[in-house]
Design a protein around this nucleic acid. Structure first.
Length: 182
DNA sequence: TTTTGGCCAACTTATATACGGCTACGAG
DNA sequence: CTCGTAGCCGTATATAAGTTGGCCAAAA
């Protein structure tokens, strides 16, 4: 079983924006625009909620969602706010899509990461415990990258959808089972 | 030699994971 | 004063975005 920690999506409003003005027009309590720090406008619809980063080009990113539902709901609310200000049409098509999923999972047992490096194939693994305690695994036939920790905890990142994340995790489990036995 | 252009990389955000190092604070 | 602990930072991963700065080379 894997859990979603973060979902990231992006879309395109297809209009050039004066983001300083957009910040004023939105009149929301949790926005931030500091070009000396970063050129994107940060918008949160709720305190501590998902972050929407808006660019001059009209492209935007939503990150920090723990569910797909929250991601799409945030997108809808954001577009509603913008259409109420007549910045975009009510039925604007932004081609909003999920770009990255960060998930966590757990192996049944602890793992010796040095042994696992050999089992997975040294050319697909990065493991430098003095630099970072997790083993980094980039499977050949799976898009996600997996971080494996000695206590059996796993982080799966870079998946475009939940199936890709699950497939990558199942692949890792098969490798572990095949090499270490069940 | 100086200026200009092009290219690439870092920057920022969220998030889980965990380890070493550092700072700060409280207690003995 | 010293020791222990707690909390935070940097280490690394992916991804979208656009700007900016650095570096190198070529032209003036």
């Amino acid at each position: 079983m894997i859990d979603i920690a973060n979902v990231v999506g992006s879309g395109d409003l297809d209009v050039e924006l004066d983001i300083a003005e957009v910040e004023l027009d939105l009149d929301l309590p949790y926005t931030e625009y500091d070009p000396s720090n970063y050129h994107g406008l940060y918008v949160r619809l709720a305190k501590g909620g998902p972050l929407i980063t808006v660019y001059r080009s009209g492209k935007y990113i939503i990150s920090g969602c723990s569910t797909f539902e929250l991601l799409y709901e945030s997108n809808d609310r954001f577009l509603t706010e913008l259409s109420e200000l007549e910045i975009v049409d009510t039925n604007v098509e932004t081609d909003f899509t999920v770009k990255n999923l960060v998930c966590t999972a757990q192996l049944d047992d602890t793992v010796d990461l040095n042994t696992l490096s050999i089992a997975l194939g040294l050319e697909l693994v990065e493991y430098e415990p003095e630099q970072f305690p997790g083993l980094i695994y980039r499977p050949t036939d799976h898009a996600p990258v997996l971080l494996v920790f000695a206590n059996g905890k796993i982080v799966i990142t870079g998946a475009p959808n939940i199936d890709a994340a699950e497939d990558a995790f199942n692949h890792l489990k098969e490798q572990v089972t095949a090499y270490f036995g069940s």
